[in-house]
Protein backbone atom coordinates (compact mmCIF):
# COMPACT_ATOMS: atom_id res chain seq x y z
CA UNK A 1 0.00 0.00 0.00
CA UNK A 2 1.04 3.61 -0.52
CA UNK A 3 0.66 6.13 2.26
CA UNK A 4 1.02 9.84 2.89
CA UNK A 5 2.62 10.58 6.24
CA UNK A 6 2.36 13.88 8.07
CA UNK A 7 4.98 13.78 10.78
CA UNK A 8 5.85 16.23 13.56
CA UNK A 9 9.42 17.46 13.18
CA UNK A 10 11.14 19.45 15.89
CA UNK A 11 14.87 20.01 16.19
CA UNK A 12 15.07 20.16 19.97
CA UNK A 13 13.11 21.16 23.02
CA UNK A 14 13.72 24.85 22.40
CA UNK A 15 12.88 25.00 18.70
CA UNK A 16 9.44 25.32 17.21
CA UNK A 17 8.06 22.26 15.50
CA UNK A 18 6.06 21.77 12.31
CA UNK A 19 4.46 18.99 10.26
CA UNK A 20 6.39 17.55 7.30
CA UNK A 21 4.76 15.46 4.61
CA UNK A 22 6.36 12.28 3.31
CA UNK A 23 5.28 9.49 0.99
CA UNK A 24 6.01 5.79 1.34
CA UNK A 25 5.20 3.19 -1.29
CA UNK A 26 4.63 -0.55 -1.49
CA UNK A 27 4.25 -1.15 2.21
CA UNK A 28 3.33 -4.74 3.05
CA UNK A 29 0.33 -5.23 5.36
CA UNK A 30 2.51 -7.60 7.40
CA UNK A 31 5.02 -4.86 8.12
CA UNK A 32 4.85 -3.37 11.61
CA UNK A 33 4.23 0.36 11.97
CA UNK A 34 7.77 0.99 13.17
CA UNK A 35 9.18 -1.06 10.31
CA UNK A 36 7.23 1.24 8.00
CA UNK A 37 9.01 4.17 9.67
CA UNK A 38 12.33 2.32 9.22
CA UNK A 39 11.59 2.16 5.51
CA UNK A 40 10.82 5.89 5.47
CA UNK A 41 14.04 6.63 7.35
CA UNK A 42 16.15 4.60 4.93
CA UNK A 43 14.56 6.61 2.11
CA UNK A 44 15.42 9.86 3.86
CA UNK A 45 19.00 8.83 4.60
CA UNK A 46 19.65 7.87 1.00
CA UNK A 47 18.19 11.19 -0.10
CA UNK A 48 20.65 12.99 2.17
CA UNK A 49 18.08 14.02 4.76
CA UNK A 50 18.03 13.30 8.45
CA UNK A 51 15.77 10.49 9.62
CA UNK A 52 12.69 11.00 11.77
CA UNK A 53 13.59 10.42 15.42
CA UNK A 54 11.27 8.28 17.53
CA UNK A 55 11.69 6.22 20.71
CA UNK A 56 11.55 2.43 20.53
CA UNK A 57 13.51 -0.49 21.86
CA UNK A 58 12.05 -3.93 22.50
CA UNK A 59 9.55 -3.86 19.63
CA UNK A 60 7.53 -6.50 21.37
CA UNK A 61 5.16 -4.40 23.40
CA UNK A 62 6.75 -4.62 26.82
CA UNK A 63 9.47 -2.01 27.37
CA UNK A 64 7.08 0.93 26.98
CA UNK A 65 9.54 3.01 25.01
CA UNK A 66 7.57 3.47 21.78
CA UNK A 67 5.21 6.40 22.00
CA UNK A 68 3.50 7.69 18.88
CA UNK A 69 0.24 9.55 18.60
CA UNK A 70 -1.30 8.35 15.35
CA UNK A 71 -4.35 9.92 13.75
CA UNK A 72 -5.37 11.32 17.10
CA UNK A 73 -4.85 8.16 19.15
CA UNK A 74 -1.93 7.04 21.31
CA UNK A 75 -0.41 3.88 19.80
CA UNK A 76 -2.73 4.15 16.80
CA UNK A 77 -6.01 2.60 15.74
CA UNK A 78 -5.74 -0.96 17.08
CA UNK A 79 -6.87 -1.71 20.64
CA UNK A 80 -4.80 -3.12 23.48
CA UNK A 81 -1.52 -2.89 21.67
CA UNK A 82 1.59 -0.72 21.52
CA UNK A 83 2.58 0.89 18.26
CA UNK A 84 5.59 -1.40 17.86
CA UNK A 85 3.25 -4.38 17.66
CA UNK A 86 0.68 -2.75 15.46
CA UNK A 87 0.83 -3.92 11.89
CA UNK A 88 0.11 -2.04 8.71
CA UNK A 89 -2.92 -4.20 8.02
CA UNK A 90 -4.73 -1.65 10.20
CA UNK A 91 -4.34 0.93 7.41
CA UNK A 92 -5.47 1.06 3.79
CA UNK A 93 -3.92 2.07 0.53
CA UNK A 94 -3.86 5.80 -0.06
CA UNK A 95 -4.51 6.73 3.56
CA UNK A 96 -3.00 9.81 5.17
CA UNK A 97 -1.43 9.08 8.53
CA UNK A 98 -0.69 11.86 11.01
CA UNK A 99 2.07 11.05 13.48
CA UNK A 100 2.71 13.22 16.53
CA UNK A 101 4.65 12.87 19.78
CA UNK A 102 2.90 12.51 23.16
CA UNK A 103 1.55 15.95 23.98
CA UNK A 104 1.74 16.97 27.61
CA UNK A 105 3.39 19.72 29.59
CA UNK A 106 4.99 17.07 31.75
CA UNK A 107 6.53 15.31 28.71
CA UNK A 108 8.58 17.92 26.80
CA UNK A 109 9.64 17.05 23.25
CA UNK A 110 13.34 16.19 22.94
CA UNK A 111 13.34 15.83 19.18
CA UNK A 112 10.67 15.04 16.56
CA UNK A 113 8.57 12.26 18.09
CA UNK A 114 10.82 11.62 21.10
CA UNK A 115 9.69 13.02 24.46
CA UNK A 116 11.12 13.23 27.97
CA UNK A 117 9.16 10.98 30.34
CA UNK A 118 11.48 11.23 33.32
CA UNK A 119 8.53 12.62 35.30
CA UNK A 120 7.26 9.04 35.52
CA UNK A 121 10.55 7.92 37.05
CA UNK A 122 10.30 10.73 39.60
CA UNK A 123 6.83 9.60 40.65
CA UNK A 124 8.08 6.06 41.22
CA UNK A 125 11.09 7.42 43.12
CA UNK A 126 8.68 9.15 45.47
CA UNK A 127 7.36 5.85 46.75
CA UNK A 128 6.51 3.23 44.12
CA UNK A 129 8.20 0.37 45.98
CA UNK A 130 8.38 -1.43 49.29
CA UNK A 131 11.13 -0.12 51.53
CA UNK A 132 13.09 -3.29 52.09
CA UNK A 133 16.80 -3.81 51.63
CA UNK A 134 18.41 -6.74 49.89
CA UNK A 135 18.82 -9.83 52.06
CA UNK A 136 16.92 -10.89 55.10
CA UNK A 137 13.54 -11.32 53.46
CA UNK A 138 11.49 -14.11 54.99
CA UNK A 139 10.57 -17.24 53.05
CA UNK A 140 8.50 -16.43 49.99
CA UNK A 141 5.68 -18.74 51.05
CA UNK A 142 5.52 -17.45 54.63
CA UNK A 143 2.59 -15.18 53.90
CA UNK A 144 -0.30 -16.64 51.96
CA UNK A 145 -1.76 -14.35 49.35
CA UNK A 146 -5.23 -15.14 48.03
CA UNK A 147 -5.10 -15.90 44.34
CA UNK A 148 -7.57 -13.17 43.45
CA UNK A 149 -5.43 -10.55 45.20
CA UNK A 150 -2.29 -11.77 43.45
CA UNK A 151 -4.14 -11.76 40.12
CA UNK A 152 -5.51 -8.27 40.62
CA UNK A 153 -2.08 -7.01 41.67
CA UNK A 154 -0.69 -8.55 38.50
CA UNK A 155 -3.38 -6.85 36.40
CA UNK A 156 -2.26 -3.51 37.80
CA UNK A 157 1.44 -4.34 37.63
CA UNK A 158 1.22 -5.00 33.89
CA UNK A 159 1.61 -1.24 33.25
CA UNK A 160 4.56 -0.58 30.93
CA UNK A 161 4.96 3.10 31.79
CA UNK A 162 4.63 4.26 28.19
CA UNK A 163 2.60 7.36 29.03
CA UNK A 164 -0.27 6.78 26.61
CA UNK A 165 -2.74 7.42 29.45
CA UNK A 166 -1.32 10.92 29.84
CA UNK A 167 -1.32 11.45 26.08
CA UNK A 168 -4.92 10.26 25.79
CA UNK A 169 -6.23 12.46 28.61
CA UNK A 170 -7.52 15.92 27.76
CA UNK A 171 -6.10 17.10 31.08
CA UNK A 172 -2.80 15.23 30.75
CA UNK A 173 -3.53 13.41 33.96
CA UNK A 174 -1.21 10.63 35.14
CA UNK A 175 -3.83 9.08 37.41
CA UNK A 176 -3.95 5.71 35.65
CA UNK A 177 -0.17 5.29 35.77
CA UNK A 178 0.12 6.31 39.42
CA UNK A 179 -2.90 4.35 40.55
CA UNK A 180 -1.68 1.16 38.88
CA UNK A 181 1.42 1.14 41.08
CA UNK A 182 -0.45 2.30 44.19
CA UNK A 183 -3.07 -0.39 43.89
CA UNK A 184 -0.64 -3.18 42.97
CA UNK A 185 1.25 -2.59 46.20
CA UNK A 186 -1.84 -1.89 48.30
CA UNK A 187 -3.34 -5.22 47.23
CA UNK A 188 -0.39 -7.20 48.52
CA UNK A 189 0.43 -7.71 52.19
CA UNK A 190 4.07 -6.76 51.50
CA UNK A 191 3.00 -3.32 50.34
CA UNK A 192 0.46 -2.58 53.04
CA UNK A 193 2.84 -1.33 55.73
CA UNK A 194 3.64 1.81 53.74
CA UNK A 195 0.45 2.06 51.73
CA UNK A 196 -0.68 5.35 53.27
CA UNK A 197 2.64 7.14 53.02
CA UNK A 198 3.11 5.83 49.51
CA UNK A 199 -0.11 7.11 48.07
CA UNK A 200 0.35 10.55 49.59
CA UNK A 201 3.93 10.96 48.39
CA UNK A 202 3.21 9.69 44.89
CA UNK A 203 0.14 11.88 44.41
CA UNK A 204 1.97 14.92 45.74
CA UNK A 205 4.85 14.34 43.33
CA UNK A 206 2.47 13.80 40.43
CA UNK A 207 0.78 17.12 41.17
CA UNK A 208 4.10 18.94 41.41
CA UNK A 209 5.31 17.67 38.04
CA UNK A 210 2.60 19.38 36.05
CA UNK A 211 0.17 16.56 35.31
CA UNK A 212 -3.49 17.58 35.15
CA UNK A 213 -6.46 16.45 37.20
CA UNK A 214 -8.69 13.49 36.52
CA UNK A 215 -12.18 14.36 35.38
CA UNK A 216 -13.37 10.78 35.00
CA UNK A 217 -13.64 10.53 31.23
CA UNK A 218 -11.44 7.41 31.22
CA UNK A 219 -9.85 7.96 27.82
CA UNK A 220 -6.77 6.57 29.59
CA UNK A 221 -8.36 3.19 30.12
CA UNK A 222 -9.69 3.07 26.57
CA UNK A 223 -6.27 3.77 25.07
CA UNK A 224 -4.06 1.80 27.46
CA UNK A 225 -2.11 -0.80 25.46
CA UNK A 226 -2.07 -3.10 28.49
CA UNK A 227 -5.73 -2.58 29.39
CA UNK A 228 -5.02 -1.22 32.86
CA UNK A 229 -8.43 -0.68 34.40
CA UNK A 230 -9.82 2.53 35.81
CA UNK A 231 -10.84 0.72 39.03
CA UNK A 232 -7.26 1.34 40.01
CA UNK A 233 -8.04 5.06 40.09
CA UNK A 234 -11.03 4.41 42.34
CA UNK A 235 -8.85 2.29 44.59
CA UNK A 236 -6.20 4.97 44.74
CA UNK A 237 -8.75 7.62 45.65
CA UNK A 238 -9.99 5.43 48.47
CA UNK A 239 -6.46 4.80 49.65
CA UNK A 240 -5.74 8.51 49.50
CA UNK A 241 -8.72 9.51 51.62
CA UNK A 242 -8.11 6.72 54.09
CA UNK A 243 -4.47 7.79 54.29
CA UNK A 244 -5.36 11.39 55.00
CA UNK A 245 -7.68 10.41 57.83
CA UNK A 246 -5.61 7.62 59.19
CA UNK A 247 -2.22 9.24 59.27
CA UNK A 248 -3.55 11.92 61.62
CA UNK A 249 -5.11 9.28 63.83
CA UNK A 250 -2.03 7.15 63.78
CA UNK A 251 0.17 10.06 64.82
CA UNK A 252 -2.18 10.88 67.68
CA UNK A 253 -2.22 7.27 68.80
CA UNK A 254 1.55 7.10 68.69
CA UNK A 255 1.91 10.23 70.78
CA UNK A 256 -0.68 9.01 73.22
CA UNK A 257 1.02 5.60 73.47
Amino acid sequence: MDLTLKIWKQKDSKSKGRFETYKVKNISPNCSFLEMLDILNEQLIYKGDEPVVFDHDCREGICGMCSLYINGRPHGPDKAITVCQMHMRNFHDGQTVIIEPWRSRAFPVIRDLMVDRSAFDKIIQAGGYTSINTGGAQDANAILIPKVDADMAMDAAACIGCGSCVAACKNSSAMLFVSAKVSQLALLPQGKAEAFERVQKMVETMDKLGFGNCTNTFACEAECPKEIKSWNIAKMNREFIAAKMCSEKRKEANFAG
Partner: peptide, 8 residues
Amino acid sequence: AQGVPFAR
Protein backbone atom coordinates in the same frame (compact mmCIF):
# COMPACT_ATOMS: atom_id res chain seq x y z
CA ALA B 1 9.03 -8.97 49.63
CA GLN B 2 9.26 -6.29 46.94
CA GLY B 3 5.69 -6.98 45.88
CA VAL B 4 6.39 -8.95 42.72
CA PRO B 5 3.01 -10.56 41.92
CA PHE B 6 4.10 -14.10 41.15
CA ALA B 7 1.42 -16.57 40.14
CA ARG B 8 -0.25 -18.33 43.08
